[in-house]
Design a protein around this nucleic acid. Structure first.
Length: 541
RNA sequence: CGGGGCGUAGCUCAGCCUGGUAGAGCACCUGCUUUGGGAGCAGGGGGUCGGGAGUUCGAGUCCCCCCGCCCCGACCA
């Protein structure tokens, strides 16, 4: 398969020089200083910045999420929260700080997180010769860990909350911030502090806990595809990619436009590891004592990075309407003339009408951009931010009962901006359908890309050829490879480490074993032994 | 934390080699002109040139140290 023409528009003939991307022929203008094809990582950063999503903060690795980015998070959060509650969970809040001894309770858990924990050791500062220093007299008896995840502190609560089988299942979720001191950070994709949701459940028996783990994975899959319009492959992580302390880890994996995989959500079956470590026991029907089987699962602000790299184009972000803080933006063409008042009144009336409509299960979010700047600038700002529908309303529209609109998902025909005129009534009547169509078309576009870019590969040599060929001069991360789907014998322990090492040489990892498996599987590409299942292999974020 | 690259205006960058007191385009402000589309002209605001310490009469430019960002590696939602 030739991958080069998969993700992007045909390579632009009119190469845009960074210093002058707003000059030159109007036909060649793009809203961003760099295209995906030129440099994908730089393009990503440009979108985050120019779409007003977030910015770096004075604290290394931490970000400021700006109103437009946080608005996306709130919509994402609300719709996922609904689903979490529909599946029987209740929200709680647990402390930011976790006693060091708690983390130490589960051996693998410690090992997995020890290298990236922020530790609070003092509770007071002292002024020493005009300098603020840690007060040696205020050292904590036991250091506190800023939570990297909350299994241990929630497990501690569970051990008190669970007495009898009648208390089970215990289904809890929390929305919180967590801290993992990462070596290398990228806005949204990997930050030292991030926002997420973590679900924690305790069950009487293994089968129910396992079922619940998969149920939440399915909630994530449906959520990602329906709300974020981001197609994913749900599957089980190989043993070496498991969450520290889990028996099984499942993920949803999304394909970014550079062909890399992004783990967009995880769900873990924790067995009885944490319940044994933390004494989460219950009295069973027979009067004896049993350990609970626990699960945990989470998605984070990383998903927003996934949305950007799934839907963004060379003009900026394209937001699925379901998570667009403003779905229909009305830009009045104001000209400092008396008729401005009429145009504005027309726009406001239009906004009011649109807001009465319901699309994707919620009132339409329509907005009139009254900011006193040039309308052309306002238009391009909304293009970069990815507002799904942008209207430009001038005096002629107002007088004639018309609207002129652009669809952000299909902004251009070649280099030309597609602007459509419609009667006001027809537009209002079809606005909800339009938003739903945009939601569907963004999904369809990404789904097609994902499906076409998964290549079955039957031998390790072919895998090397497939991924290795252009690996050398791929400094800008341009070469699009997509994913490979291969059969393997599911080795464990050292045999698996060997596989991982061979893949690492190609910068590859096993993403997951998709839930949907074929009836029969070929020979393992690593060992030649009979295959047990098929797995996806990719470069990853 | 290792290897490479880079930090000059809000953004994209020039100036650094060959030291002489800070620039361009876009953005922003004011005025005039223009008006179905990222307009034109004129004027203007904005930078302790990432930070510190040195060499020098003089440092954006040379030397040293530190910090941050980006890419690759190790680690990871």
């Amino acid at each position: 398969m030739v991958a080069a023409n998969l993700p992007f528009n045909p390579p632009v003939a009119h190469v845009i020089t960074p210093a002058s991307h707003f000059s030159g022929s109007p036909m060649s203008k793009r809203a961003l200083p760099v295209t995906r094809a030129e440099n994908f990582p730089e393009w990503y950063q440009a979108v985050v910045r120019d779409a007003d999503m977030a910015e770096a903060s004075p604290v290394r690795g931490c970000m400021v999420i700006k109103p437009w980015g946080y608005g996306v998070w709130e919509l994402l959060q609300r719709q996922l929260d609904d689903r979490i509650k529909e599946t029987g969970h209740e929200n709680c809040y647990f402390p930011l700080f976790i006693p060091k001894s708690f983390i130490a309770k589960e051996a693998e858990h410690v090992e997995g997180f020890a290298k990236e924990m922020a530790v609070v050791t003092h509770h007071r500062l002292k002024n020493v010769d005009g300098k603020l220093e840690l007060d040696p007299d205020a050292e904590l008896e036991e250091p506190l860990i800023v939570r990297p995840t909350s299994e241990t502190i929630i497990g501690d609560a569970f051990s008190r909350w669970v007495r009898s089988y009648r208390d089970l299942p215990l289904l809890i979720n929390q929305w919180a911030n967590v801290v993992r001191w990462e070596m290398r950070t990228r806005l949204f994709l990997r930050t030292a502090e991030f926002l997420w949701q973590e679900g924690h459940t305790a069950h009487a028996d293994e089968a129910e806990a396992r079922e619940h783990t998969l149920r939440m994975l399915e909630v994530y899959r449906e959520f990602a595809e329906t709300v974020l319009a981001m197609p994913v492959i749900a599957g089980e992580k190989p043993e070496n990619e498991r969450f520290p302390g889990a028996d099984n880890t499942y993920s949803i994996e999304a394909m970014m436009q550079d062909g890399k995989a992004l783990q967009a959500g995880t769900s873990h079956y924790l067995g009885t590891h944490f319940s044994k470590a933390q004494d989460i026991r219950y009295q069973n029907r027979e009067g004896g004592e049993s350990y609970c089987h626990t699960t945990s699962w989470g998605v984070s602000t990383r998903m927003i990075g996934g949305v950007i790299m799934t839907h963004g184009d060379d003009d900026g972000l394209r937001l699925p309407p379901a998570i667009a803080p403003r779905q229909i933006v009305i830009v009045p063409m104001l000209r400092d003339k008396p008729e401005d008042a009429e145009v504005l009144a027309y726009c406001e009336a239009l906004q009011k009408e649109l807001s009465k409509r319901v699309a994707l299960g919620a009132p339409v979010r329509a907005f009139v951009d009254k900011k006193a700047t040039k309308s052309a600038d306002k238009r391009w700002n909304w293009v970069r931010r990815g507002a799904p529908v942008i209207l430009e309303i001038g005096p002629r529209d107002a007088a004639g009962g018309q609207v002129t609109f652009m669809r952000r998902d299909h902004l251009r025909d070649g280099d030309k901006i597609i602007s459509t005129a419609s009667s006001r009534e027809a537009f209002i009547a079809s606005a909800a359908a339009l938003l739903e169509e945009i939601q569907a078309s963004l999904f369809a576009e990404a789904k097609l890309r994902l499906d076409e870019a998964i290549t079955p590969i039957a031998s390790f040599a072919d895998l090397e050829a497939f991924f290795g060929a252009a690996a050398e001069d791929d400094e800008a991360g341009v070469a699009f490879k997509g994913w490979a789907r291969v059969a393997w014998s599911k080795p464990t322990g050292e045999a698996l480490e060997t596989v991982a090492t061979r893949l690492k040489a190609l910068k590859l990892t096993i993403r997951n074993a998709p839930m949907a498996q074929p009836a029969s599987v070929g020979a393992c590409i690593f060992t030649g032994a009979p295959g047990v299942e098929e797995v996806l292999i990719a470069r990853a974020y």
